[in-house]
Write a protein that binds this DNA or RNA. Sequence first.
DNA 1: AAAACGATGTTAGATTTCCTTACACAATTG
DNA 2: CAATTGTGTAAGGAAATCTAACATCGTTTT
Lengths: 108, 108
Amino acid sequence: MGNENSYKDKKVITIGIVRELTGLSERQIRYYEERKLLFPERTAGGSRKYSFSDVELLMEIANQIEDGVQTHEIRKEMVRKQKEITQREVRNKMIQGQLNAQFGIRKP
Amino acid sequence: MGNENSYKDKKVITIGIVRELTGLSERQIRYYEERKLLFPERTAGGSRKYSFSDVELLMEIANQIEDGVQTHEIRKEMVRKQKEITQREVRNKMIQGQLNAQFGIRKP
DNA sequence: AAAACGATGTTAGATTTCCTTACACAATTG
DNA sequence: CAATTGTGTAAGGAAATCTAACATCGTTTT
């Protein structure tokens, strides 16, 4: 269940490299953060750190922007998708709870 | 055959992050490069860029050093292993060539 | 023993990278 | 028309990185 996605999601890439990888300007990258489309971490000194997932996300964002979609719309869709995922997880957890109640608890 | 290793081998991590990830000092990281144990790329401005593979390699190096192995020995072993791999590849390529010669060429 | 080597720390000064804030402006939206 | 959106650019400062050099100290070689 836990992903061996250790690399893809690790926040280790500075904004300059992200610029190189995506072709976006630093201004754009920071702006999309301001619009709450992605959430880089920070070094102790305050520099942003991104993951490969972030890079991929940025490229998708860039495509949507190019198609005339506004950041606000992009965000709405992202939140919607995330809610879906979270709800599925909650449901699964509940089902798991039921199963544990029925079969998981053995008398000693 | 080609690895979907797009992330692991991509050189995108600056030395400060590598320091955090490995616990080594920047001095050490640069020194091991001087001893030809790893080969970061550079940004346009000259900053070093490492991959996750490099980070893993650095941790292995750190272990060996701790065991009293010298960089020179580490390098010899690395070269040996690499030669092995290369030779296997050459062999495979030759075999592939033979197979193509026998079966790959069809008359039209 | 003296000299050389190996591994690492530290310092210094220069350069690069990154940060925030602010202003500008064109295009789109309400 | 007023507000919002998306982006560029500039300024000034702080953080991160670079190279080169010198210092230390343990180990190896001569």
